[in-house]
Amino acid sequence: MAKVVIVAERCKSCGYCVKFCPNQVLAIGKQVNSKGYEVVESVKPEECTGCTICGQMCPDGAIDVYR
């Protein structure tokens, strides 16, 4: 089952992954990393197809994608 793993320390809460995920799997979470950014979370993991769009769009490579 495809999934994403967030590298929390790299996330800057820019929201690109959330915007471009075809299935709205991701959303900005409430947890903050050491820099104070609210880290993105997989809120609908079951919808993830492992298409890697989120990973490619993320400026800082904060998303690893498995398929």
Binding site: M1, A2, K3, V7, R10, G50, T52, G55, Q56, D60, G61, I63, D64, V65, Y66, R67
Partner: peptide
Amino acid sequence: MEELVYTRTKAVF
């Protein structure tokens, strides 16, 4: 087991 299909390049620290 899923395979890692995307991760940040090792050319970036």
